[in-house]
């Protein structure tokens, strides 16, 4: 006997993501999901971003990591609320894991929630966490072929941060070709060229992010 099913494999995750999204929406907390390879500089970009936003944007961080809390400890030093999720081997965060830590935050007192996903270019993209925007971090030392090799992340992201631009001259990366490939996959994406180490370009990224946070806050005051 055949049973027609037609149920999405990710439907349970999507349901949970809808719940998370409605919690964020209720308090108008703009939420981003940062993804990229291990070592691309996600945490360092985040640290620099926090330093710029502190005082203007009330933010909190959820750190995804397979086993350690090293990244959360780094973020803690910047004086913002942070919760660690250890996936215990899983290569991505899912909406249920995020839901499990949301009650540890006072969402009413937040403007921005930053979720740093597990370092991985492939798996995290498939799991909606309830975020407003996906953000890709790609360090130029990874090579200019990465967008075409891992297109889904770039297709689904609202912005890509090209990190480690300070050492561009020591690489064989063709920056124009890299930018072109990213736009072919996603013409609406915003590209930021930064160096989290030197701070170059971080301002532009932080301004752009602040604009998005403020747009969401306007909805809050309009209500």
């Amino acid at each position: 006997m055949e049973i027609k099913v037609n149920t999405g494999i990710l439907s349970a995750n999507e349901q949970k993501a809808v719940e998370n999204r409605s919690l964020f929406e209720k308090d108008r907390v703009f939420t981003i999901n940062i993804m990229g390879s291990p070592g691309s500089g996600k945490t360092t970009v985040l640290e620099k971003t926090i330093d710029i936003l502190t005082g203007t944007v009330r933010l909190a961080v959820i750190e995804g990591d397979i086993y350690t809390s090293k990244d959360a400890r780094r973020i803690e030093k910047h004086g913002v609320p942070v919760e660690q999720i250890n996936t215990g081997g899983a290569c991505h965060l899912d909406a249920k894991m995020v839901s499990g830590v949301l009650n540890k935050f006072d969402l009413t007192g937040l403007d921005l929630m930053i979720i740093e996903n597990v370092g991985n270019l492939v798996c995290p993209v498939e799991f909606d966490l309830g975020e407003d925007l996906k953000i890709a971090v790609l360090s130029i030392t990874e090579g200019d072929d990465k967008p075409m090799k891992y297109p889904l992340l770039f297709r689904e992201s609202g912005a890509v941060i090209l990190n480690k631009m300070d050492i561009l001259e020591f690489t064989d990366v063709d920056l124009q070709a890299l930018r072109q490939d990213i736009y072919i996959i996603n013409p609406d994406i915003k590209i930021f060229e930064v160096s989290a180490r030197t701070g170059q370009g971080i301002d532009q990224w932080a301004d752009w992010l602040t604009d998005r946070v403020n747009n969401k806050l306007k909805e809050k005051t309009a209500k």
Binding site: M1, I3, K4, V5, N6, G8, I9, L10, S11, E126
Partner: peptide, 13 residues
């Protein structure tokens, strides 16, 4: 797309 389309189970029901 990423979904379970159908299942086949033993017996005629």
């Amino acid at each position: 797309e990423l979904y379970v389309e159908s299942l086949e189970v033993d017996g005629d029901g």
